[in-house]
Design a protein around this nucleic acid. Structure first.
Lengths: 235, 235
DNA sequence: GGGCGCGTGTGACCTGGGTTACAGACGGGA
DNA sequence: TCCCGTCTGTAACCCAGGTCACACGCGCCC
């Protein structure tokens, strides 16, 4: 799984640099006692993964705990038909709730995860994770805050999928990523839990209204307001 | 909000009894130091709410933290059309993740909650909640375990709503509650995020196949296996 | 420059499930 | 007993969105 060894000469100043980036990305962890930070950096595996790497699979076991330093991980459900639906992204400075849940409840993964761009991780083993959770106030606070954020937006997602038409959800997505997004129609479908053809059809209708202009793997948003209005109109 | 004062004479042996029920319902809390339990019982409001009481509303503020001793609370999303979708139930011995999230993140509710049957609660104020979280290992463990369980099944729910046809979801629900369930078709629709007519239509088709028999506010499951097969057939 | 693979455009068709609009049935209270 | 509110059955209709089956175009590597 290691793609590039981040510390070829194993010097401690590299470790110190890692502590620095860690604290930059996770301001909350700056409050950890220095020994704990040392421990994290020393025991943790520092990895660089290329875009598209599978990090975990639904029904797979969970034994480690990643801190995302750079890049993003998308966590998604996959239907037998192959259709996908994005649950959430893990951005730098975050950690993966699902992994946390799995470690806490000692269960297998209930979704899949893959890197979306090149991703830099610091991976902690399960024992270290539990130890930090038991002994470090700052670490617990971090975990709690991630948990609470995710719960709220998972609920949001359930509601959207259940009650919102696809055009609205697509419009919201486009508005969120304005002014330009580089993605295939398939990528968007995978985010929304739909299929390519429908996304293409809707994009075309948006383009006809002058809201976006389309190119290969590129969408330029030209009228965020209209998209937002469609996304939010109450009904 | 108080419907019946549970401790009219305010004697301490009533408090002691409450500590006992509390520890029965929440085995994890039995490990709390006795002072903490005392504090909970003394500061907490002991309430009995009749079925159907609104406990909190979407977009409403959140200032208290309920421990469910008996009965259940259903937490659901409501669309502007009036359609509802059950997110999860809070059963005795549990606490409400959404409330926890709101208190931790200091946000407003992102869903609504109502009692489903007569419900006995012990409601803690926000300060006590934070204090317990900071100082009691056992309380934290409880919160973590509820969190991790809910995250997993919220994800499950997203997937079901996004990828599963209603007949399968209804079949799963019926199988889960076999051999008999007392509920109106509307209740089932509110659980699934659909409408009464469709539920009626599907139930009729199940009845024609001999899988269930229908009565007013009552459904008898006669063939759990078939329902389960429908719910689980991979496709 | 000739394939080949990937991303896109598009039409025909199908269907699950939501909407509307009733009518009949049951059951509890006056 | 009658009445009214709630629950249920059902038919007609509609539409969002999924499926299938292509064709086309761009870019890239032989």
């Amino acid at each position: 799984m290691t793609v590039r060894d981040a510390d070829p000469d194993g010097t401690t100043n590299v470790a110190a640099a890692l502590v620095t980036t860690l604290c930059e990305r996770f301001p909350r962890l700056a409050k950890l006692p220095p020994e704990a930070l040392d421990e994290i950096v020393r025991q943790g595996q520092h990895l660089f993964l290329p875009a598209g790497t599978r990090v975990f699979d639904e029904r797979g076991p969970c034994g480690a705990f990643p801190l995302v330093l750079a890049g993003t991980i998308r966590v998604f459900k996959q239907a037998p038909s192959g259709r996908q639906l994005l649950l959430y992204r893990v951005e730098p400075g975050e950690l993966c709730v699902l992994t946390t849940s799995c470690l806490l409840g000692d269960t297998t993964y209930s979704a899949s995860g893959a890197t979306e761009s090149e991703t830099e991780l610091l991976v902690l083993g399960a024992p270290l994770f539990h130890q930090l959770l038991a002994s470090c106030e700052a670490f617990r606070t971090l975990v709690f805050s991630i948990f609470s954020g995710r719960v709220v937006d998972l609920m949001q997602r359930v509601e959207e999928v259940a009650f919102q038409r696809l055009d609205r959800r697509l419009a919201a997505l486009l508005a969120r990523r304005a002014p330009e997004l580089r993605a295939t129609h398939q990528d968007l479908a995978d985010e929304l839990g739909s299929v390519r053809e429908i996304v293409s059809r809707l994009l075309k209708s948006f383009a006809e209204r002058g809201w976006v202009s389309l190119g290969r793997e590129k969408i330029q948003v030209q009228d965020v307001e209209s998209l937002q209005r469609l996304a939010e109109e109450d009904l």
